[in-house]
Design a protein around this nucleic acid. Sequence first.
DNA 1: CGACTTTTGCTTGTACTTCGACTTAAGTCA
DNA 2: TGACTTAAGTCGAAGTACAAGCAAAAGTCG
Lengths: 396, 396
Amino acid sequence: MEPPRKPSTLGFVGASDIFQLLRDGQPRTRAELSSITGLARSTVALRLEALRATGLIGPTGGAASSGGRPPSQFALNPTARVVIGADFGATHATIAVADLAGDILLTRRTARPIADGPEAVLGWFGTESRGLLAELGRTEADLLAVGMGLPGPVEHDTGRPVNPPIMPGWDGFDVPGWVLDELGVPALVDNDVNIMAIGEQTSSFPDVTDLLFVKVATGIGAGIISGGSLQRGAQGSAGDIGHVRIERGSGIACPCGNFGCLEAMASGPAIAAQLRETGADVANMNDVADLVRHNDLDAIRAVRQAGRDIGEVLTTCISLVNPSVIVLGGSVSRVGEHLLAGVREVVYQRSTPLATQHLSILQSRVAEKAAVLGASVLALHHALSPESIGAMTEEL
Amino acid sequence: MEPPRKPSTLGFVGASDIFQLLRDGQPRTRAELSSITGLARSTVALRLEALRATGLIGPTGGAASSGGRPPSQFALNPTARVVIGADFGATHATIAVADLAGDILLTRRTARPIADGPEAVLGWFGTESRGLLAELGRTEADLLAVGMGLPGPVEHDTGRPVNPPIMPGWDGFDVPGWVLDELGVPALVDNDVNIMAIGEQTSSFPDVTDLLFVKVATGIGAGIISGGSLQRGAQGSAGDIGHVRIERGSGIACPCGNFGCLEAMASGPAIAAQLRETGADVANMNDVADLVRHNDLDAIRAVRQAGRDIGEVLTTCISLVNPSVIVLGGSVSRVGEHLLAGVREVVYQRSTPLATQHLSILQSRVAEKAAVLGASVLALHHALSPESIGAMTEEL
DNA sequence: CGACTTTTGCTTGTACTTCGACTTAAGTCA
DNA sequence: TGACTTAAGTCGAAGTACAAGCAAAAGTCG
């Protein structure tokens, strides 16, 4: 009555251990791998052979000889396969193809309203993705996975948006299922702020385990990396700090139905609206940025005040999660110096010295690339996981 | 030139896999374990034999027969060994002995000022621990590990307090080293709020992955469990929300040097001080609790307002970490209903419906036991980890 | 009470993995 | 060029897990 059981002996799954060591791209010799893993050199050689068969690991130029036969080295072959990282905003979408090192090979940014609905947007995504792959001379078989950021709360485990306010038709839509049908690869979906946090952390602060990424644009949100991993919260809406009440906002109505929300005071549209009240002719954040560049005092003052408002909320966030780095990103970061100044002013005044003595507050270093970088990392994290590598080496 | 290497073949380390399955205390038959793990029955029998030799796993009464020989069952033997969980507050200490299921066998609470310094306090802890073990008829060899909570920030990896404000002489003290010398077992040290969060989550909400434990006593602090694991932050001071500024507090000085801190308005001493200003004769929180029990309106109003103040800070925390449960604990929870009412009033008014629709705000269910429970869990987590179990089965 | 069922403990042979030693390859240096 | 050094490939030995088989144990059911 036993179900048929394949000999479950650990098999070549152990190959993934060595692969994970080589993920960093550094070339290593068999002897080095042997001493790191504790496996015999002959075993390491077996594993490397299995990995070489997948193409993911390849030999690099041998190292210098130390008097005898020079050792050959092996390293991640970043060009073996690719992943796609996509970022969908309210009005625009960015698609990027990245190699296995997470380096972006090709990017395309297009106007593409998310409100067109999942079929239209994802349909376009599919054809566009194939186009990008063809442009790079790669086939669909080279694609390992897709990472995707959406402008709303997403249940990451299932990849379905949940009650997204600005994504009509997307609620509960099975995005990974659709991508699997269309491109034949798994899709990892997350909130756009979350993938920006991942992108920033991976690219700019690889050794930082506690980082807060704050996106200031049409809305305001935060991505939390704590203890080295992204925190999504119980319903995937962790970091939604846009509707926290701030002192200055008392009485000001927010579209959310509440009063005094941070987003109603410090978001891009809010800054523009405040400037219009002073008589300035600004339609959006681009106009504000222009004014700031021309040293318009009202504009600078408004941006700086927005920074103070954000800083007010961040003081609580800092006390709560105790990050070592806070990164400001999003479209408002184009006026980042003044925003940053406002944030710092409040944070360093109000927070306890213990929490701020090792805290850096910075602008995003990867800026508009953060999202697609993070999406690619998400895809790579899945595609190069021990489980996936185990499956790839075993089926040969 | 190779270092001598013992044949690293996986050996009996696999025994820990089966042990982790049995950690929950549920008895299981060999056949069940075989089908869960995918291992052959003969292999399962081997592993069980190794585990039985350690005493950690024992046979339980066989299950009901289904027509033939009834299967024998195996389960965690909770009484095989013990751990000690300790909680040190500013003035008092609690030591508990717990079995492998985390159930507390014996507790002792004593006045023991933390300010006496590490040698005095830990010396007392050592003799007291031995006394408790003897009282239970157990030897020191039965002790597996110690978990410990301290009233200040602790670098959990090393077990050393860092800049603790109320623990003179403890800064950087090697607590685990001391415990190892004294009792011969490893010690896991953490902030007291953190261990309370762990205790509450383990005992009351084992299925909740995102929980905030808020301790309101002499100070105010929070323990954050997010994504199923405790978040300690970059310097181990995550959750230090006592010195966040609140609206009502403008102009009120806090001992920390800042103004308007939550702790200066809503902590136990702060509530008592506010009541004294109305003419009430209250020295501490106990007196306040008495007044509340006698339906003193001023006292109830003060407690409720403190709840509102805490709720104000919690709205931001809720938006940020998106927990599904918030637990209020600490000595002020003796007037918990009114405190809770204040917290709920503000939270449900100010937070977004998305964040609160699945949020429960409750009083601690394990109350004063939370800390030692959590400390025991910390100790068990280490002592029953796959590594530890692997070491135990291998040395036989 | 005896036949039947189911689990257990034990044994055996096979398949697979890992190890370590040995041989061969590929350089350096005198 | 030849001796030396270091790395890589090969292969048998050892050990583990597995499946299968069998006898004994411990129940149920007629």
